[in-house]
Design a protein around this nucleic acid. Structure first.
Lengths: 213, 213
DNA sequence: GCATGTGAATAGATTCACAGCG
DNA sequence: CGCTGTGAATCTATTCACATGC
């Protein structure tokens, strides 16, 4: 369920305000979804609500954290230390949720040794050692598109079983390895698509409402 | 249709290899989806394929570009010039698709004047002027979560009708404004969720297959 | 013959509406 | 009485399977 992390964030905000319980309706408002959806989603975790009252904020926080595996910390390696790799390495949202960046690697020897925050960039060839030493569970690909598939293959070979791909390329991984992708350019193209359609209809409307149209 | 940009990218790659036509099956392979889905998606644009042959690569490229509104360029403003804002400002994938970053703005006066690539950071208060002068169509929010809603309100007030939100917060916009969000931390949490479940089942399997289990 | 385009079938997600419980 | 939990209804997306046309 891709919405659990959103609920988690909402609950953390609510917990700050010393609110003890929350209704599905209030939660839906905060999360920007339908109340029935909230209840159905939460019911998959078990019956953690109280009828007539709502959900206990602290208890639900714990249950969702546990379900998402956030009660343990996950060592993460970032491959590709360009602009995006830098930004991801410094992104506070990761550490706030128990994701610990344990290594930055790059294929470019010129970048090896460069310091980013607490870490020094290491070479891609060291990936197997790093993965083994640090028990890396998640790999982030922040390389150019052309390198993405090879990097994915190397991550898998090193034993990494979950990959987040920021490179604008479709990559394939073996059965049993989880893969998610974020394509920044695609997000803008989707917005462009809607803007484009708006203009199409705006023009059509203008024509239709024009005198004599 | 969120898959059109993926098809576009695949077609661009194929076009580089001087291939004149492409079948839905080959396209599906490149895009990592089902062939029937490709055909159904493309059929919404019109009947641009030839039975027994496939799709003309150049023609389809043009049709998809047009549908996505990529035949014109879209002025984009980025709000928030932290690590992520920097990375987005330098991201080549945007300009490659006709998205032109025309301004970087930040609420922090200490950042105003700082140069990032060709642009100097301007103050958030200048947003209405910038939006009007540059006909900004798309705004990108790369601020901390706490500032996101106010920035969105300001973008809307300045006439921006499409917003891409990178801040980890649910924001609301008026009817007629398109909003998409990318939450980096949520993507990792989803992977964590699957890893967590894998461990759960791995343990269950281990127990079940243990001698006497 | 071969690959598209598309109705029909299926699967999945969302919403409704209300029974059940505190 | 209020709010959860959930079966049923609805809507949307995906896949199948084949008629259609080059």
């Amino acid at each position: 369920m891709a919405r659990l992390p959103v609920y988690l964030r909402c609950l953390l905000e609510v917990a700050d305000t010393k609110t003890a319980t929350i209704s599905s309706e209030r939660m839906a408002e905060l999360a920007g979804v339908n109340a029935a959806k909230v209840r159905k989603d939460l019911s998959y975790l078990g019956s953690y609500g109280t009828r007539g009252v709502g959900y206990d904020v602290e208890y639900l926080l714990f249950q969702i954290s546990r379900e998402l595996g956030l009660t343990q910390d996950w060592p993460v390696v970032i491959v590709g230390v360009g602009n995006l790799g830098h930004a991801l390495a410094n992104y506070r949202g990761f550490s706030a949720r128990g994701f610990r960046i344990v290594a930055l690697v790059d294929a470019d020897t010129a970048k090896v040794g460069e310091r980013v925050g607490d870490l020094a960039v290491r070479h891609l060839d060291e990936l197997p050692d790093i993965a083994a030493d640090e028990s890396v569970a998640i790999g982030i690909i922040a390389t150019p598109a052309a390198a993405a598939q090879e990097v994915a293959d190397r991550l898998v070979a090193a034993g990494v079983t979950a990959i987040l791909n920021f490179a604008p390329a479709v990559i394939t991984v073996p059965e049993g390895v989880w893969l998610r992708k974020v394509d920044l350019s695609i997000e803008l193209q989707i917005l462009s698509f809607y803007q484009q359609r708006r203009m199409g209809t705006a023009m059509a409307d203008a024509v239709l409402s024009a005198p004599g149209g």
